[in-house]
Amino acid sequence: MEYAVEAAGLTKHYKDFTLDNVSFQIPTGSIVGFIGENGAGKSTTIKAVLDLIQKDAGTVRLLGRENGARSKEVKEQIGVIFDECYFPDGLQAVDINRMMKHIYKSWEPDVFLGYCKKFGLPERKAVKEFSSGMKVKLSIAAALSHHAKLIILDDACGSLDPVVRSEILDIFMEFIQEEDHTVFLSSHIISDIEKICDYILLIHKGKVLFFENKDSLRYEYGIVRCSEEQYRELDPEMVVGVQRNHFEVEALVKNRRALEEKAHDYVIDPASVEDILLYIVKCSQER
């Protein structure tokens, strides 16, 4: 299998946070959702992948190249969209088009202007007059206009309304139709992740908790609703997280199918990605 991004042992120490030995491999041709609560280390991981911070340890291969983020040739094939638009305020879309034509060898002016039109971005209006949603759309237009093979989004869709977000997700679905195209999507909007991702990477307190296929996650995890006595009978190895209320115990369990076959008197519902994230994070906070 080929990988668009291979991170091994990424470590970065800050005074109050450590990105701790983060490793993952993003298969080429997939959409990977990168989730975790605020401050979990998503942006730090992306910065480490893009060589925007000095790593204390670890290696990154981008599109098969060691330290790919230092190679102009590799960066020709990458589009990055951050949570903010970093184009200077005085620029207009036409200026960005002319500037990018001299930065990317494979820049397609017509494609960029086409996206601007599609997203309703005026060509001759300064970036400072754009709304935050328009600014993100501008960044997306730029990322999609140079034949990129890998798109990395760092919480970019958060400021978009649901209609535009859905439109953007459709564009990424279209983008991924080429078998060598990959999307690495960090987001808080779990519904988006569930909608389009093939794999999910969960990070918590600077550590990767899992990197799994979305379908096997749905298959593997379940929420058991039971009494306290029934809960105590559960194999602790299976329980990932638990929440109690006045009436019952709700536990997130791994290996749901095995439990269903073994114990027929439990009510086991499929767990959504959001449930998995919430249980894991809450459980870890309680510990």
């Binding site: 893009l50 060589d51 925007l52 983020a69 230092r70 102009k72 040739e73 960066k75 020709e76 990458i78 990055v80 951050f82 903010e84 970093y86 184009f87 200077p88 305020d89 005085g90 990018m100 930065i103 990317y104 060898k105 990395i152």
Partner: peptide, 18 residues
């Protein structure tokens, strides 16, 4: 100052710019 206010350098390093 404009580059700094926009955070342009961070973005520029994701382009074919070193």
């Amino acid at each position: 100052g404009y580059d700094e206010a926009a955070g342009f350098d961070k973005f520029a390093l994701t382009l074919p710019v070193n």
